[in-house]
Amino acid sequence: MADERVEVVLQVNGREHRLEVSPRWTLSDVLRHQLGLIGTHVGCEQGVCGACTVLLDGEPVRSCLMFAVQAQGQHITTVEGITPENGLSPLQEAFRAHHALQCGYCTPGMLLTAQALLDRDPNPSEETIREALTGNLCRCTGYQFIVDAVLAARGQGRGA
């Protein structure tokens, strides 16, 4: 079948992008290849690893399991969108301070899931944090330092 192109308007990190996409292109691929937002990582393309997690109207979703055409009119936040112009957000700062990353592959997805949790519940318990992060796999840290970082970032908002 011919790979047709359709127009889609995406709101990514507060900016509007008018793009020509093929319906079969996933949101993760369009973010990375069309918009150059390579902070969104792609690990498994089957919804299991969580590396591609982005926020859709503020809620975490798998960008590998959505087609870009579907995001028409919705607001998408990638890791670039929660990173301040200068320096790091309080959550990112806590990840650094607590050694919550080694290779960094899982980190964008971890940050977005944790940020969405802190946005809806500024003071989550350790259990709530662990439950929220079950959908994000990390092959390096053993999770404890990630949980420590999110605990430390409680009550600090998103920063500038």
Partner: peptide
């Protein structure tokens, strides 16, 4: 069911 991001969709 699944994880938060899966349940959201």
């Amino acid at each position: 069911i699944g994880h938060w991001a899966i349940r959201n969709r």
